[in-house]
Amino acid sequence: MIAPNPQTGMKPPPAPPRAWTNTRIAGNVLMALWAIAGISLAAYLLGNLEKPILQALMPLLSGDWATWAEQRLATHEFDSFLERYGAKYLQGFLVTLQIVGLSLLFGALLSVPIALARSSKWKIFSRPAYAYVYFFRGTPLLAQTFLIYYGFGSFRPELQSIGLWWFFRDAFYCVVFAFSLNTSAYQAEILRGAVQNITKGQWEGAAALGLSRPVTFFKVILPQALMVALRPYGNEIILMIKGSAIAAIITIYDVMGETRRAYSRTYDFQAYIWAAVIYLMIVETLRRVWDRIEARLTRHLKR
């Protein structure tokens, strides 16, 4: 933009109106479609609130409106979907948070030795770690969960004799175990990639200053590596949240499990739409929070 001329105070001419190109028309049509879809979805979900709204309005209504409202209320002989299942969804949300939180925590603890072994010079360490990572990244999470939950049931006598049967009998423990193993493989790769990404000069510089290798690693290399790893870690958390829906298949009542239960009882498609709303809100919130954290932690790198 050209600034107004300070001597004459004249402003530049206004920009010409934007032409209605084909792309602009297409964009507007698509946005209109999204808006229609969004509004009809919101209207569909707000149908849950019809009863309380009508009840609140009842004393204010008179004449034809009152009879109409009474007729509408008479059609609601039972509670709305949200009233019946809202609390269940909240419970499911907490279960999802538990599964994801525990798996990420155990996965993070497990990923450190795996990453160390994977980048070790000795093949006895690096080969098995490579196989571990390859296995857990190359097979579907669902198959891994089945392998642990149903598969370990084959070894019931052995597990009972070493006193671990209580663990593998419980679907919740099995899911957390399977997810931890899975995410530890991914996190190990993230960690290894981030540490290798640090240039050799950082090690040499620290060595020249007389720092020992452990001090160099924890005070020089790791802080820089974690900065690089921040984004992939965020993606991994999101992947884990999305992957946790699989737990519903082996009878865990997380958000997805409660959704399936509600749907099987009511055949009301709302069940799945509410689940979509919940998952989208979790993932979007996390993504935004993570962006903030990243911007805050890397603020010294901004020019």
Binding site: G27, L30, W34, S244, A245, A275, L280, E284
Partner: peptide, 29 residues
């Protein structure tokens, strides 16, 4: 990649939805 903001926004809504939903839920939906 287009310079038209409305088209960009429409495409971004699409990716936000399908990248945010669990694959299992998309399948059921």
């Amino acid at each position: 990649n287009s310079s038209e903001p409305s088209l960009k926004l429409a495409a971004n809504i699409y990716t936000t939805i399908f990248r945010g939903l669990p694959e299992l839920l998309t399948l059921f939906l």
